[in-house]
Simulated scan of single mutants.
Amino acid sequence: MEEQKERPAFRNLRIDTARYQYLGLWEELRIPPPLPPRRCHHSAVMIQNKMYIYGGQDVHIGVLGDLWVLNIDPSSSSNELWTELHPSGDLPGPLCRHSAISRGNLIYLFGGTNNSVENSSIYVLNTENLVWTKINPSSEQPPAIDSHSACFNEADNTMIIFGGYINGVHSNELYIYNIQANEWSRPNSQRKPDPRSDHSAVIYQNYMWVYGGSSESERLSDFWRLNLRNLQWELVQSEGISPGTVSGHSVCVCGDVMLVFGGIREIIKETNSMYTYDFSSNKWLMIQHETQIKDPLSPSEIENYRKLAKQRHTVQYSSKEESAKADLTKQRSAVVGAQTQGRVKGIVPHSRDGHSSIVFEGGMYVFAGDRHQMSFNDVYCYSIQEQVLKTPVAI
């Protein structure tokens, strides 16, 4: 196995929001075709300098079962290219609203749905030989879950699953998969967050932190943490300006700060606002107001894309299935027109939910998502500035 290079550590990270500088911290990655089809509610993990995405859905195309990898190279944008991978083994098939974590060179995928059948299994991808393996645990596995959260707890080598939909009903159950022992457990707590889906969860130090999501009747704005030592929940009473009610957002941890980007507040009310939570001071800070920007596609391009999507449902795949899929992928890539390769500074991502975000070498990378039933396949990077913010200026 190739030894992973040690990445520079973040030091008491703060976000520089003074003097309206946040707009200049965004970059759009202009990547030439081939491009992944547009999607939302996919999974994304980072292994070394590569972002792996799996599945997701487009309301006009359906649920996807493809695997793509993006090579990220901040020092040379000409090396930043998408590649579709074709693994073998026990393929998970089309899935959306699933979760994935990475451990070494392995990707662990759990749950999700193809909008017809829900998945209750774990699939593991070895990124070195590109072979999928379906795991048969030595204990009873959880029921099928989708729209949940998953975190990898490196301290005890476990994958922690929380919330989501079980049999079409919101859940607040906690399931823990011990990778070494290949066993599931279902710990209980006297006090739990309300049942929810499309929330966020991250691990910082000895806690798993959960924010927002959707319940049966509303979107949520509560903030909880799970003590990973005794597996008891605590409601976090924080200070500052929090993201408020939101679901389908993304979160990242950088140093002592959690970044929350995007999400949806109500029907057809997606946002591209961004907030930080400082673990050490227990304070929220808004670092980006909702920003109105030009639609990434013109009305004619959107209509063309939807026509191509309808063709997807009329194709009768036979022995030429792979060729037909390849043709459609080329067509979908062509919708965005010719692109100039490179990074373009100062372009803020459109409002979206169901996207993913990961951190790599001082940047938060945002991929895909959905706005008003129009999915994206774009990539943006927000440069994280290591500056201590002494006197915040309202933006």
Rank of each mutant, 00 (worst) to 15 (best):
E154A: 15
Y305E: 03
L389K: 04
Y123E: 09
E290Y: 10
R196W: 05
G337L: 05
L67Y: 01
S77R: 01
S242K: 08
A334V: 03
A144V: 08
D278Q: 07
N157D: 15
G346A: 07
L109M: 09
Y382S: 01
L95C: 04
R371Y: 13
P94E: 11
V202S: 08
D73G: 08
Q341N: 08
Q205F: 11
N304H: 14
Q57M: 10
E301K: 13
I135P: 00
E183M: 09
T245G: 08
N126G: 09
K307M: 11
V388K: 08
W82I: 10
N178F: 07
G248V: 01
E6N: 09
M46V: 14
G244Y: 05
L125P: 01
W209C: 03
I122K: 07
S185G: 07
V348H: 05
I53R: 04
N79T: 00
T291E: 12
C151L: 10
S171I: 05
Q316E: 13
H41D: 13
I145W: 01
N282M: 02
L297R: 01
Q373C: 13
D370L: 15
I287Y: 00
V253M: 10
H41Y: 14
L29V: 03
L91N: 08
Y123F: 15
I61A: 08
N12M: 14
T291Y: 11
Q288P: 00
P36Q: 02
